[in-house]
């Protein structure tokens, strides 16, 4: 189980690094919003991993809050996006 914990943590870290690379590099603001949405999903996954490993349920409300923040953020940015420099 410890091995699985480190393995899952490593995979999530690599995924977060790739998504952050796209968020930094992304040519448009929509790409950045999309990449940060993925980062939020990975953060939620890490919260669940912590709950599974340490056998508690404290982060459930954080899980809902993280998905709510991602929803509001991406909808807001997509609503007000323009291309005018």
């Amino acid at each position: 189980m410890t091995t699985v914990t480190y393995l899952v943590g490593g995979i999530l870290g690599i995924a977060a690094a790739l998504a952050l690379y796209r968020a930094v590099r992304g040519p448009s603001i929509l790409d950045r919003v999309l990449a940060l949405d993925v980062v939020l999903a990975i953060i939620g996954a890490a919260l669940v991993l912590d709950m599974v490993v340490n056998r508690h349920l404290d982060h459930l409300i954080l899980l809902v809050a993280v998905s709510l923040i991602g929803f509001v953020g991406s909808v807001t940015v997509a609503r007000f996006v323009t291309d005018r420099k």
Binding site: V8, I11, Y21, A35, L49
Partner: peptide, 27 residues
Amino acid sequence: SVLLIGGALMSLAAGIGLTRFPDLLSR
């Protein structure tokens, strides 16, 4: 363990897809 690794591989697939796909819709 299987469920956790499967979920983590989904995240990894999203990361790789975000890095390698050509435009916004495929990302």
